[in-house]
Simulated scan of single mutants.
Amino acid sequence: MRHFEITTVLMAPPERVFEACLDVEEHTRSMGASSERVVSGRTRGVLALGESVTFQARHFGVTWRLTARITSWEPPWHFVDEQEAGPFKQWRHEHRFEPDGSGGTIMTDLIDFASPLGVLGKLADTAVLGWYMPKLIRSRDAHLARIL
């Protein structure tokens, strides 16, 4: 299992950042480079506890689908999305939001993931996904910083 954390400071209060991170349409805009789109579940608006969404995107020349469900939700401080179906053996993304003391938010992404296929999956996690996934999350966070 791989783990990484990314901290981003955003110039908006936690309530706005929390909502933007749960907005399905904003998520697809943040992942435009991979042609991400919603194919089932909530297709518009903001996800809530227990809701799921299936995204389709293209990475490494292959089209993938990932269904994620919101499994923990404490507005505006914390939520977790976890893969229900998709390319990973396991995917868990914890989002934390705290005030920065000047009207902004310190957002922390804590991500745990593992690829399927045993040794081959571990090799993919180490050789490729270990750098690719943090890059993808940083790109999403930069998008949020621009819009907020």
Rank of each mutant, 00 (worst) to 15 (best):
R2Y: 07
H3S: 04
F4W: 06
I6K: 09
T8K: 13
T8V: 14
T8G: 08
V9E: 14
L10E: 05
L10F: 10
P13F: 00
P14I: 07
V17D: 01
F18Q: 06
F18A: 01
A20S: 12
C21E: 13
C21L: 15
C21V: 10
L22S: 03
E25H: 08
E26Y: 01
H27M: 11
H27W: 08
A33H: 12
V38G: 06
V39L: 10
S40Q: 02
R42Y: 00
L47G: 01
L47H: 00
L47K: 00
A48P: 00
L49K: 04
L49F: 03
G50M: 02
G50N: 00
G50F: 01
V53G: 01
V53Y: 00
Q56P: 04
H59D: 06
F60G: 01
G61A: 07
G61E: 06
V62C: 01
V62R: 10
T63L: 09
W64M: 10
W64H: 15
R65K: 13
T67M: 09
A68N: 14
R69F: 01
R69W: 06
T71H: 03
S72D: 15
W73D: 06
E74P: 06
E74L: 11
P75S: 13
W77A: 13
E82N: 08
E82S: 07
Q83Y: 13
F88A: 01
F88S: 04
W91Q: 03
R92T: 07
R92G: 02
R92H: 07
R92Y: 00
H93G: 03
E94W: 04
E94V: 09
H95I: 05
H95K: 09
H95L: 05
R96S: 11
R96V: 10
F97L: 08
E98F: 05
S102T: 15
S102G: 12
S102P: 01
S102A: 15
G103S: 06
I106R: 14
M107F: 15
M107S: 11
M107K: 08
T108V: 15
T108S: 12
T108D: 12
T108I: 14
D112Q: 02
F113S: 02
S115F: 07
S115E: 07
L117F: 15
G121V: 05
A124I: 14
T126E: 15
G130W: 14
G130S: 11
W131T: 13
M133C: 13
M133K: 08
K135G: 10
L136W: 13
I137R: 08
R138T: 02
S139G: 11
S139V: 08
S139D: 11
S139A: 12
R140E: 07
A142R: 14
L144S: 09
L144H: 15
A145W: 09
I147V: 14
I147Y: 04
